[in-house]
Design a protein around this nucleic acid. Sequence first.
DNA 1: ATTTAGCACTCAAAACATGAGAGTGCTAAC
DNA 2: GTTAGCACTCTCATGTTTTGAGTGCTAAAT
Lengths: 343, 343
Amino acid sequence: MLTDRQLMILQVIIDDFIESAKPVGSRALSKKDTLPYSAATIRNEMADLEESGFLEKTHTSSGRVPSEKGYRYYVDHLIGPEIYQHGLGIIERLTNNGIYEFEQIVQTAAEALSKLTNYTSIILGPEMFEATVKQIQVLALSDQSAVAILVTNTGHVEHRSFTLPKGVSSSDLEKLVNILNDRLHGIPLYRIPEVIQNEVASLMMKYMNGLDSSLNWIRTLFTQEQAVKLYFGGKANILMQPEFNDVDRIRSFYSLMEREDEIVNLLKNSNQGIKVSIGHENEVEEIKDLSLITASYHIGGGQMGTIALIGPTRMEYKKVLSLMESISREMTGAMGKWYSDKS
Amino acid sequence: MLTDRQLMILQVIIDDFIESAKPVGSRALSKKDTLPYSAATIRNEMADLEESGFLEKTHTSSGRVPSEKGYRYYVDHLIGPEIYQHGLGIIERLTNNGIYEFEQIVQTAAEALSKLTNYTSIILGPEMFEATVKQIQVLALSDQSAVAILVTNTGHVEHRSFTLPKGVSSSDLEKLVNILNDRLHGIPLYRIPEVIQNEVASLMMKYMNGLDSSLNWIRTLFTQEQAVKLYFGGKANILMQPEFNDVDRIRSFYSLMEREDEIVNLLKNSNQGIKVSIGHENEVEEIKDLSLITASYHIGGGQMGTIALIGPTRMEYKKVLSLMESISREMTGAMGKWYSDKS
DNA sequence: ATTTAGCACTCAAAACATGAGAGTGCTAAC
DNA sequence: GTTAGCACTCTCATGTTTTGAGTGCTAAAT
């Protein structure tokens, strides 16, 4: 339904607008040597493109600006599989000495992503519900306090300090840790409270005394409250975008960024592969004039997190898409290598 | 050198401006019943106060605004020891079940602080150089990978994953961990690299073979790169302040917030007690028109961190100072209770 | 039957003008 | 010493004009 020439013009307009952020007019277009037509001709074509909904005007006598439909078409059909070279090997570089810390890798990846694109990046840490218990340890720090450490099969380490309940001797504690390790080893994190309730409780009754009051306490100790973590990169980048010249716009954006649970939801329901949500395609009010790109990464079998990038709808989709593609592949690759799933 | 009446007027002007953010004029002041003088009288006094440098005009015929000198005087002499009631017991509330996670406490404290004040809070995590090694553990995750865990006497847990160097058997690893625990127990973190170099190296030579190439690797594994962590609260709060109505102002602020090392420096050199830096008293360009309040907290013997609050010079010093006072005391108290220093 | 040149028209943004309002400084009276 | 009064100043909001980029349409050119 669109002629070749219209597609060409659409492409050039979008490319131009993505770069300049200014409405593009017929005169400027006719000067480009990719389009050997006069301004008037281009005007006609633009009028058609507007009628079909791919372009918009900001006011009656302004140049044209891509509509969301225009961007959508651009993303779906007008960008070829172009590979963005920079930024490859980011993660490899981080870990080439064989030593790594998960948090640091993810944080650096987020920063790199935002630096390379000048947009704001968000990485959702991996779901850990399915990770299983590898080992539990309790270490006394003093007479009154101790630290409990839990290591999962994926190499995650959770720890929590606590004051020792009265009347708990060190041998009690040792017994308790033995019971916990015995019963919880290999159990996925989300089942911990349940197992403690059903199995650990009775064993505690049997082999230890006076500890049943502590049961509730132990359950609390090993219950994860917030399962996923967010890593941000370049929160300030978005301020460089001319569409953020309005203080209220900035306010609303940053206020969203502080509501982490909403962000988690926003990123979570991303399925496999890369997903581009342009403007109103987003559910969340505050980013209905932005574009959100999400890509998932995987760790071993099934657990996963999401990499996301937020920027104006006028986003450098070409660059961004290929970059996200390669980073998510790299992350999946790197993680999979280390976190083997044998327990 | 200032008359009582001038002090009164100064105080009222500052209080008023702190609340309204608008230059305050003589007419409005004469209407308050704390000041039973006519506008003209007040005008004269204000002229004097301006001459002595406590007040400023934004332009020739505007109301007066406190100068930095004015704020300084206000903070030093004009606010009594007023106790801010809300927000007491924040930290107690967080830990009343005896279970706590350091990071979470600090983060929550930062958020509470910013919520109660509507400014941006920053908490500098404790210096850990002086904490000593309590225990080191290495846990194999698979044939190729393992996780190393280090617990300090203060209950901090550091962990790092790594791929096992080739030719390292599990018994080698066990020996290594034994050596490390033997030599490093009780050693402060900052001395770890040195001790590994001098003592561990020779022992490794003696009892294990083929591992000397891994020495460097072990040193890297146990070397802390970034010793302090920052916790932010209410980064978006500052946007609500009318002095942040300018996009460039916002940009510069957020760009500073991303340069964490600079922030660490800014907060670090705070000595005991509470310190107020008003406007140009700050060294850092980006906050020369803001006020920075810092207070230190302590953990057991000597290690410490800093609590900070950033807001416009037009800050509610009364409220903020008493709040910072009580929060830093609470943190010191709470931390000290748990992190006893016996190793 | 396209394409193009030309021209009238539109609108946003910048530049300029005007007036009201809040506030000051000064003088003279209280 | 305090206050009323008044001329003066500057900002801010509002209205007006100008400029320039861009369009849509028509008629001529290819």
